[in-house]
Amino acid sequence: MSASDVEAIRKQTRTYIGVFVTLMIMTILTVAVSYFHLPVAVAILIALIIASFKGSLVAAFFMHLSHERKVIYWLLLLTVVFFLALMFIPSLTQWNQRYVR
C-alpha cells in the first residue's frame, strides 16, 4: 500500500471518531427529548428525524456509502422503493374496520 493510501486510512479513522462522538450526542438528545412529554405526533417526528440522521451517519461512514460504486446505489434505491411500499401498506387498510373486536 502506498504512503498516500496509509494517510487516507488514518484520516478516515479520525472521521470515525468524530462520527462516534456525534452518534453519542444524538443518542443522549433523543432520550432527553423523550422526557419532555411532547404531543405524540411531534415526538414521533423528532425521534424519526434523529434516528434517520444517526442511521445516515452509520451508512455513509461506517458502511462506506459516501464513496461506493454505482451498482450498490442502484441496489439500495430499489430497496428504498420497496421499503417505502411496505411502510405505506398500513395506510391502505380499511379505516372503518378499526376497533372491531
Binding site: 433523543t30 427529548v33 425521534a47 434516528a51 442511521g55
Partner: peptide, 24 residues
C-alpha cells in the same frame, strides 16, 4: 469489511428500534 457491513446494519436497525419501542 463484509462482516463489518452486516454488523453496522444490525447497529442501524437498533438505532430505529430503540426510539420506536422505548421512547415513543
Amino acid at each position: 469489511e463484509v462482516a463489518g457491513l452486516y454488523w453496522h446494519f444490525v447497529d442501524l436497525v437498533w438505532i430505529f428500534l430503540f426510539p420506536t419501542l422505548y421512547l415513543l
